[in-house]
């Protein structure tokens, strides 16, 4: 996957979470994914806490992008 593709995917995923296009993701946005992704509310909470590196309760594109890179470079997508 090229760098541009990663950036594009990051934006796509971010927008899937930030459906109101606020420019950030909050816990409520994350919980909305409960019905769409096979993750429990608790797991989504964990994901949010893991991605929210400064712990301010808002996920920015930068934080989201860092988490995605970590995932990509830590584990290969099959």
């Amino acid at each position: 996957m090229g760098q541009n593709t990663i950036l594009e995917k990051t934006r796509e995923f971010f927008q899937m979470c930030d459906i109101e296009n606020k420019g950030f993701i909050n816990r409520r946005d994350m919980q909305r994914l409960n019905g769409e992704l096979p993750l429990s509310a608790e797991e989504l909470e964990n994901v949010f806490d893991t991605l929210d590196s400064d712990g301010n309760g808002f996920l920015t594109l930068d934080e989201f992008s860092s988490g995605f890179s970590e995932f990509l470079f830590g584990r290969k997508i099959s």
């Binding site: 995923f13 992704l37 993750l39 964990n46 994901v47 806490d49 893991t50 990509l72 830590g74």
Partner: peptide
């Protein structure tokens, strides 16, 4: 570092989350 600790503990959950997003996007089951 609490973030590192949380990151390690939730690595599987994070992978699950992004894999789910990828599956959703591509329409794979």
């Amino acid at each position: 570092d609490p973030n590192m600790k949380a990151g390690a503990a939730n690595e599987g959950v994070l992978a699950n989350f992004f894999n789910s997003l990828l599956s959703k996007k591509t329409g794979a089951p």
